[in-house]
Design a protein around this nucleic acid. Structure first.
Lengths: 222, 222, 222, 222
DNA sequence: GATGAATGAGCATTCATTCAT
DNA sequence: GATGAATGAATGCTCATTCAT
């Protein structure tokens, strides 16, 4: 993909690391306000002025903590990623469950989490072009991949690294993309769970099949 | 999902049906110019003025054929959908191949098609908020679902309608979402094919598993 | 009143006098379409394109009979004036009735006529700036004044020309301005008649008073 | 009166209440510039850009104090109304004069006030369609009616409420409409005064006549 | 005569960001 | 540090009028 020309890739990290309680609180206020603006007005009405007003501060103050509009959105997304990432990590690495069980759990947790505050997530998604090319975004994707890669080492111990990489990619991308889509469509919770379950089944079938292929499976797999 | 307020859903269909050669050519010119603007400048610099200038016509003329900016983008997307839709339809309904074979073919074809003109597709995607809620977009999604539903009747003849619906949903959404993601990431063709193949395997494993469940499969499945 | 500078006073008379039946019909069609556009969309959406489309002809043809947009509006207004003018003339000059009776009749007729197709009249009024300064408009006003002046000769035979002129002005302007206002407010017919009646009374009282003043009124004045 | 469709009734009140001297000054500058633009170019060339430029500020600043173009015009008109309203109120309620005397004074004052800055008034009038339907406009009309209704209680104490309402309507509408017309025609001051005087006479004759009707007036009225 | 495509200046409004106070 | 007024480029869209066919 040739990236379009005139696309500036602005600084997204915070202008200053807020160490003092006051600053931390201010950043939190801004982010909370941003969430409200996004959910209330949609991505295309998300403006710094509105965020500042909602946060009860001045635009000037807002710009003291975020270098530009994109940075706010990115921070929101990053926090989101951090949370979800932690959740997925915990589930994927939980050796008390068999791999397929973990997958089921992960998909269900992810779908449910995506469907919370759906309108916010849709808005964040609409704003994605603003931060898509940021290095932090890439880092997030990489971290996700790592998590699934690690999981595949548990789930497909006999597979080659490349096989595992492909499986990790497929599972991760399917889950995240479909989760996003499901949240966007605003389906009812019961249906979301049904889809999550089906997707878990699909992943399980896929892993089983891979295991069969790799280790001829004298009697049966799993 | 509570929809954000101020989102208007404007008319997207063409202002006049161009019957004469001249008009048809003009519309084609506009669309071609739109593609170039989109690919060259990205969705966020896609303006009617730029499109008109690129097409070598006046804004006024542009507005004679498209009621608004969204309509141009939507038309681009619709043409895209029409093409891909036809392709998928042909493959999914091709009874000369077994269902799993068709799935493999479909995924590969879809991924490849998505990776052509990737930057255009990304830009179109970024513009999706502008036409997402249009009835035409819903119609497209519905048509896609129908195609896969029909396919599932071939592939899972013994399953209940609901099972088939869920399977169709999962497969369709996974494929389209991952295809989009893959195209966005700009992976090399070889890798794309590898992913397509893996995804085909995953779908195949899933359908096989469903068939086993449904018809206890005295001897073997498929 | 110093007239604003940049106000062009364009030609308002028809580009060609249509003598042939065909042309006459065309002009009639255009005018009828104009009325419909005006009433349907309001003055600020009155465009030549819309009129042409509503008339089922091309813009080009429209411009063959009217030099510009203003001319159409002016023509509408002029026709209107012609009609109402005839009506008023007939009533004001009707010697079979006493002057005050005529005034009552005139006011009632005028108010009723103003209230027909009120939305058209309002729209025409909104468009007045476009033709206000045209000589034809002045001519119309002058004709109206003449009519009332003539009437005053009947009603106030003993008054001086200047007194009559003032009385004519006052009566004419009150009637036309209030009529316009009443139509704009969309009052119910019964109320309109009541107002007309009251205004007729007012005019009658005024004329009586003037007569008393002028001819010392044998017994008592006032 | 069927109102035309697509007429939006936008917010007209100021975007922020200017408390600080600076802001107040800015608003004043904008209004003054607006007056100049209106008088200089006419209503149809009244644009926010021109106002801002004339005021020596940026469009953005203008929009910080007025939500839209209409609001500026409306504010001008409202200020106007406020002034004239106060004047009329004072005269109409002045019990040191007999009712007919007050009417004469009111008409003269109103006509004179209308003829000041006539070209501005005409322009404001031309712009009326932009704010005609606003609730504030209705409120103004209502206040005016109240003033005259109150006056009629003094002038026609024995009349029924309905009679008074009709008389108030007739007098108010005649005066305001004719005043507007007179100002628009740009007549010389002497003539304006003559008309005012005649109109005052007419109103006086009307009220006298009503009084006679109501209380058979044993000897003579007033 | 008729057509209707083409023009392009013009307009209202928004918004990210700065900087004097 | 905080404020918020000021900026002005940018955008989507309209419409009167012309003129080649």
């Amino acid at each position: 993909m040739t990236p379009p020309k005139n696309r500036r890739t602005p600084r997204l990290s915070s202008r200053k690391e807020p160490r003092q309680a006051r600053s931390t609180q201010l950043v939190a206020d801004i982010l909370e306000a941003a969430v409200r603006v996004l959910a209330r007005e949609g991505a295309h009405r998300f403006t710094t002025a509105r965020v500042a007003e909602t946060a009860g501060i001045s635009v000037g103050s807002l710009y003291q903590y975020f270098p530009n509009k994109e940075a706010i959105l990115f921070r929101l997304q990053a926090d989101e990623w951090r949370q979800t990432g932690g959740l997925l990590q915990a589930l994927l690495a939980d050796r008390s469950m068999p791999p397929t069980g973990r997958l089921h759990a992960v998909v269900q947790a992810f779908f449910r989490s995506e469907c919370e505050e759906a309108s916010l997530r849709v808005a964040l998604d609409d704003a994605a072009p603003l931060y898509r090319d940021a290095p932090e975004t890439q880092a997030h994707r990489k971290a996700g991949r790592q998590r699934f890669l690690q999981f595949m080492r548990d789930a497909l111990p006999a597979a080659t690294p490349r096989e595992r990489a492909v499986a990790a990619d497929i599972v991760m991308m399917s889950m995240s993309a479909v989760g996003k889509q499901v949240s966007e469509e605003g389906r009812p919770p019961a249906e979301v769970d049904r889809l999550a379950s089906a997707m878990g089944d699909m992943f399980a079938a896929y892993l089983d099949r891979m295991r069969e292929r790799v280790q001829p499976a004298p009697k049966r797999a799993i």
